[in-house]
Structure formats: C-alpha cells, structure tokens
C-alpha cells in the first residue's frame, strides 16, 4: 500500500520499506493541485486572464474581427461625455436597484415573520413562496409579465374596476420600469428562506424576557428581531444589490431588446449587450463592464461601511 508508507513517513517513523517512488499519494501539495487543476485552469483561462484582457480592451477600439486599436481613455470619455444612452442606462439601473431591493427585502422579512410559527404546514408554505424565485428569472415568466401589463391586459382590467385607466404599462415610459420592479420584488423567496432560517436561531428566551417587561409586538421586532437578524439582513442586502445591478432577462423581454419606451427600461447590462453584440463595439462594452464592476464594488463597500453602525454580531454568530 503506497499511501500507507507515505502517511507513516509523515508521522516521522522509519518506513518499513524503501521510501515510495513516483505515484505515491501522501499529503503532498501535488495531490491538492491535482484536485484543484480544473478550477485553476478555469481561474486562469476564463477568469483572471479575461479580466485583465477586458481591462486592456476597455482602452481600445475592438470589433472582434480586426485587432484592437489603443485609444487611451477615449471610451471612458465618450461614455461620460457624449453618450446620453449610457447615462439613461445608469439612471434606469440605479432607480431599479433603489426601488426593488428595499421593497423586496421588507416583503421577504414580512413573510418570514408571518411564516415563523410552529406549524407542520410551514415547510409547504415556505416552498410555495420560494417557487417564484426559481421561476422569475425565466423568459417564460417575463413573457407573462409582458402580457399581464400589456394594453388591455389583466392588470389594466383590474385597475379599471377601480376607475383607473393606465392603458398599457409596458408601452408607457413612466410605468414600464415599474413592471420590472414588480417582477423583481415578486422574487423575494430566496431572501425570505434565509431570513426564516435566521429567525429560528434567535433564542426564544429573549422574547419571553421582553414580554415579561411588557414589550409589545412592534417593540420586540425593533429591539430583538431586527438587531439579532442584522447580519442576515446585511447578507441579503449585499447579495440582492449585486444581483439587481445585473438584471437583464426581464428588461430584454419586456422591451424586446430595445430598453424602451424612451430608454426607460434600458438597464445597464442591456445597453452593454447592445453595444457589444449588436454594434460590435467591444472595447466600449469592456469599458462599461469595468465601470459596472467598479460601481458594484463601490456600492458594496458603502454598504459594508454603513454596516458597522447597524449590524450587531452576537456572541455565537460567526
């Protein structure tokens, strides 16, 4: 048994037989890299290399078919100086993030609180609320949303019962973004499941003690639940924000790839796709990609900075 010898060697005892030759599998670094080799290949060839390449391409004119031409900061200057669509895209995306993320998290927490109850039905309910998170990213559901909010679609029919006439949300520059926000909020199941798991880790004694002291439901929520849950809130907030910045499918389907009406649903990634894969301005699109990375990094940093003042780590958390 070759490996037996290797592990004996490691323990510092004299080997019973001559030291193992090639092909032995002790706790040797080589074995670890054998396990890691697919990951290392991917990390170098498909992640690190392409990251650096796209950083370089962002300073070039590149159309995929001719070799890239170095242009310095021209792409970046054009993005901020001349490209009105780019600024619309940033604005539409920021609005989407600011509207969908907070509401989604509040909905997730509210439903988690509602479900956090000793009942045999809890598991079933939890799964049912989680289902939209799995379906919501699909083209099929985006098509449903488009139909629901089309002119004379079901949403219009319901609102007309209350005397409100909107006449086609999807084609209204003021309402089209709202359709996408609603679709985003609808997928609150994933953070809800995480909240629910977090709620179960709060010791019930805390609530008993608070109740003895006469704290009501709202006071308990503010003083026990939210502080105890704050690391989980931070986790969901960061994850959801990063995800929301990159939403593509819904905007593509609802606007049929245009980002219309009037750039109102021109999400950042949609505009990046248009530039890179419709206009073949791939240097320009690379510059946009790096700005997206920087923007996400900046926002994430700000969230973590702010977390110092509102996230409480209890004794046994992490």
């Amino acid at each position: 048994m070759v490996s037996a010898r290797a592990s004996t060697l490691e323990r510092g005892r004299a080997p019973a037989a001559p030291a193992p030759a090639k092909g032995s599998y002790g706790e040797r670094p080589g074995v670890a890299y054998l396990f890691l080799s697919p990951w290392v290949a991917g990390a170098v060839l498909l992640t690190l290399g392409p990251m650096l390449a796209s950083l370089y391409l962002s300073f070039t004119d590149y159309d995929l078919f001719t070799s890239p031409k170095f242009v310095g900061f021209a792409n970046y200057a054009r993005l901020f100086g001349e490209d009105a669509h780019f600024l619309s895209a940033v604005w539409a995306t920021v609005k989407y993030v600011l509207l969908s993320v907070p509401v989604q998290l509040v909905a997730a927490l509210a439903v988690a609180l509602l479900l956090n109850r000793a009942s045999r039905a809890q598991g079933v309910y939890r799964s049912a609320f989680y289902a939209p998170s799995l379906l919501g990213a699909s083209v099929a559901v985006a098509l449903v949303w488009r139909a629901l909010f089309s002119t004379d679609g079901a949403a219009d029919q319901v609102l007309s019962l209350f005397g409100v006439r909107t006449g086609g949300w999807v084609t209204d520059p003021g309402l089209a973004l709202l359709v996408l926000v609603l679709l985003g909020i609808w997928q609150f199941g994933a953070p809800m499941v995480i909240f629910l798991a977090g709620l179960k880790q709060i010791p019930p004694e805390l609530y008993d003690a608070a109740a003895v002291d006469g704290a009501g439901w709202w006071r308990q929520l503010r003083s026990i639940t939210v502080p105890m849950l704050s690391p989980v809130i931070l986790f969901n907030l960061v994850l959801d924000t990063i995800r929301a910045f990159q939403v593509f499918n819904a905007a593509f389907i609802v606007s049929n790839g245009t980002g219309g009406p009037g750039d109102s649903t021109l999400f950042y990634t949609l505009y990046l796709w248009q530039k890179g894969f419709v206009d073949f301005k791939m240097g320009y699109a690379s510059a946009m990609a790096w700005l997206l990375l920087l923007g996400i990094a900046l926002v994430t940093t700000l969230i973590f900075r702010s977390a110092r003042s509102w996230v409480h780590y209890g004794g046994d958390e992490r």
Binding site: E27, P29, V31, A32, Y33, F35, L36, W39, V40, A43, L46, T47, L48, G49, P50, M51, A53, S54, L57, Y62, L64, I242, F245, Q246, T269, L272, G276, M282, A285, S286, M288, A289, W290, L292, L293, I296, T300
Partner: peptide, 29 residues
C-alpha cells in the same frame, strides 16, 4: 488538503463569487 497557495487561491475563489460575468464576457467570447 494543505498546500502553500491555499489562502490566496481560496480568497480569489471567494472574490469571483461576486464577480459580474460581464467583466470576462468579451475576452471569453
């Protein structure tokens, strides 16, 4: 497993979880 580059490689792996795919999209294409 123990190996010398474990800490930096693990850190890199964690960082790539958050990496938007758009940053590697065009070179990959």
């Amino acid at each position: 497993l123990r190996f010398r580059l474990r800490a930096p490689l693990f850190g890199f792996m964690l960082a790539t979880i958050m990496l938007p795919q758009h940053v590697v999209l065009i070179p990959q294409y």
